[in-house]
């Protein structure tokens, strides 16, 4: 869905520039985080029925040498397009940009997106606005990301930077040569678990899913691993039966993987296992008894008054209360000690 093939980096021609500032010409690579794409797709759903495409601003970070751009965030900008003119809500873009930057001070303006794969004259106009001096990304090139959202076709992401064309300044203002640059969708470690849940809903009719419990996700993972093992052993059997051509590299890889299985002493394993499982069970047991204790303590703190009339009630509560407090304190100390002992062998 993204272009991962080879790219030819051409040094783009540069327009007239202010003296002293050297615009940027090095090759560029764009990395898109999934949440920016999600936000763009969401925006494309919320367009007016007569709108061909919607546009918005991309925010993110740029590496120090400027060769890598990471798109982390995006927001929608209203615009209207007719046959011969385009209007972008500049005021809105400015105020929204300010608000976004307040919340994410580390992110900067990267460029803009459109939800159709088409590039036209208006694209050039908007591109020049985003890449311009002052509010734009100057001296770095503005990145233009197109995500095709046509129903029934694949969602396709492409990224471009632009170079000015045209002999006169007026001509150059509304035209641009778009140069494709490679892009890639990447997610970070933290997003993995979220994406897992989101993509687990992709095969369901109602397109929604609950959050899996720990055990459920464990089950799924194990099932998947079993499936993979089956596929590999099928392949190996096919090779043995001389139905599939053998491959040395694959064989070597499988052998290496098998060699990873540790050779263990049965008694060692037994002992370590028992030690560890006891730790786990003790902690679990203690956690549950603590829960009961807390419940009890809270109940005692409020329940005592029902025993007596209101006058003596206070005295009675006091008595019970102090009792629980003391016993709770005593046991707490003991508990702490036990827990610490449990942890000690594992710490070194």
């Amino acid at each position: 869905m993204t272009d991962t093939g080879s790219f030819l980096h051409l040094a783009r021609p540069l327009g007239p520039s202010a003296p002293g500032v050297q615009p940027f010409t090095a090759p560029l690579k764009v990395i898109i985080q999934p949440q920016a794409i999600f936000s763009i797709l969401d925006h494309s759903l919320r367009r007016q029925p007569d709108q061909e495409r919607v546009i918005g601003t991309l925010l993110g970070t740029r590496s120090e040498d400027g060769s890598e751009v990471e798109v982390r965030n995006s927001f929608a900008v209203g615009h209207t397009e007719t046959q011969d003119q385009v209007e972008v809500d500049m005021e809105y873009q400015k105020s929204m940009l300010n608000l976004q930057l307040k919340a994410n001070p580390r992110e900067i303006l990267i460029g803009w997106y459109a939800t159709s794969a088409e590039l036209n004259t208006f694209s050039a106009l908007i591109q020049n606005f985003y890449g311009g001096q002052g509010d734009g990304t100057w001296p770095h090139p503005a990145v233009h990301l197109t995500i095709s959202t046509e129903a029934g076709k694949e969602v396709e992401a492409r990224t471009y930077i632009s170079a000015p064309v045209g002999v006169t300044a007026e001509r150059a203002a509304d035209s641009a040569a778009f140069i494709p640059v490679p892009c890639e969708i990447r997610y970070g470690e933290a997003e993995k678990s979220g994406l897992e849940v989101i993509s687990s809903a992709k095969d369901r009719e109602d397109r929604s899913t609950g959050l899996p419990t720990d055990i459920e996700s464990l089950e799924h993972a194990i099932e998947e691993v079993l499936g993979m093992l089956e596929r590999v052993s099928k392949y190996v059997e096919a090779v043995i039966d001389e139905e599939t051509p053998p491959n040395t590299a694959l064989g070597q890889f499988l052998l290496n993987a098998l060699a990873l299985a540790p050779k263990v002493n049965a008694e060692d394993i037994e002992r370590d296992f028992n030690n560890h499982i006891q730790d786990v069970l003790v902690v679990s047991y203690l956690a549950n008894s603590i829960r009961t204790q807390i419940d009890l303590s809270n109940r005692l703190a409020t329940a005592a008054l029902t025993l007596g009339s209101s006058g003596e009630g206070i005295e009675q509560t006091n008595g019970t209360k102090e009792g629980t407090g003391r016993s709770g304190g005593g046991q707490r100390g003991g508990r702490g000690g036990r827990n610490n002992r449990e942890q000690e062998p594992r710490e070194p």
Binding site: K192, E196, I198, S200, K202, D214, H220, A221, E223, V225
Partner: peptide, 8 residues
């Protein structure tokens, strides 16, 4: 993406 082998 799914399932996530981190749970193993």
């Amino acid at each position: 993406l799914y399932p996530n082998f981190d749970s193993l």
